[in-house]
Amino acid sequence: MSELIEDVIVINTLGIHARPAALLAQSIAHFQSEVYLIFDGNRVNAKSIMGLLTLGAARGSRITVTCSGDDAEEAMARVKDIFESGFNEIKGYE
């Protein structure tokens, strides 16, 4: 069981606030894999809303995502999708 590591960038204007945190946590909650986000020297579980909020990930932040587990690939794809969609919010460069 290998660990996947990839980088994502926060592109929405408001960064990771409550709604994006809930969106991310909820959409990966059903994966078996452990998903962690590493940013600014902090490592938080991506399934924890409060953890995501403490990251303080503003627009333009580069976040390292690690996934380990049986469905790590799907989980990673999901996380990247969500970051790339800018959490369905207004993106940083209008």
Partner: peptide
Amino acid sequence: SAKILDEAVRANNLRRNRPPLKPEKKKDLW
């Protein structure tokens, strides 16, 4: 409580905002 926390997080994020990213492709604009 949820709203107050969200406002605090947003304010914090906005303060730490980096300059807008350069769009890679034009069609991504909206």
